[in-house]
Amino acid sequence: MNIKAHFPAFETGLVSELEEKADLISVPAGEPLLKTGQNIRSTMLITKGLVKVYREDEEGNEFFMYYLNPGDACALSMICATKQETSGIMAKAVMDTEVIKIPLQYMDEWMTRYKTWYYFVLETYRSRFEELLTTIDHIAFRNMDERLVFYLKRHQKSLNSNIIPLAFTEIAQELNSSREVISRLMKKLSDKGMVKLHRSHIEIIDLN
């Protein structure tokens, strides 16, 4: 469990406790890490792979919230774990992923014992809150074409790649739109030379 590689600020005592008391688990691509209504008994730190966090309605429609990359933690699982609430979100491994699972009882204890953990938790809350505000701004104040560009940019950044392996149907589902609308807007982006459309993926050329 190479904790220092992804969380270099953690002090030695905290790293030792993580190695002793936390579990490193492997999650294959496509497998869920959290489900809506699930009891939260631990929080998670990402050490490898990519995790998609999203909401799901009663009809199975998804609303994409954000990605978790190596070095990130799930802020909502931290909040739910601390308050001993059930999950209001879904989290799924996009690619083969490794996660450090920290049992609930150590969350508060480490907040008072380790400054680096305290600041890490606060920074995790702050960054996720700002990211959600940005998402809300785009939903409330932007047209669908602007939302689509913002969505593609987020995937480009999170995947660290210009190749976005998403189908139009999936994009439409996560943007609460229709496949026809997304298909039309993607063709407009393609005509402008901003993307290239392939059978199995979208290739980003220049979204700026």
Rank of each mutant, 00 (worst) to 15 (best):
E56K: 14
S183E: 09
I164L: 11
D72W: 13
I182S: 04
D145K: 00
A29S: 08
F168D: 12
T36E: 06
R154V: 01
L207W: 14
K188L: 13
P165L: 05
A172W: 00
V99D: 06
M78L: 13
K21H: 09
F10P: 08
I89C: 00
H198G: 06
D206W: 04
D191A: 15
A172H: 04
F141C: 00
E174K: 02
Y54E: 03
L68E: 09
T82A: 10
S190V: 05
Y106M: 06
S77C: 15
K92S: 05
P103D: 10
C74H: 11
I171W: 02
D137I: 01
E56C: 06
P32Y: 08
E180A: 15
E180N: 09
K83P: 00
A93K: 07
K115E: 12
K48Y: 10
K21W: 06
N61P: 03
L24A: 14
I79C: 03
L166G: 03
T112K: 12
E180M: 07
Y119M: 13
R147C: 01
G71C: 04
E56G: 04
K92H: 05
E59T: 11
L33S: 03
A91Y: 10
L68H: 14
F120Q: 09
R179T: 15
L50P: 06
F141T: 02
F7T: 07
E85W: 04
R179D: 10
S158R: 01
K92T: 12
R126L: 11
P165A: 04
G88L: 14
S183D: 08
E58K: 11
T86N: 10
T134H: 08
S42C: 10
T82L: 09
V195I: 15
L24S: 11
T124E: 09
S183T: 15
L166S: 06
F10W: 10
I46H: 03
F10Y: 09
D206C: 07
R199N: 08
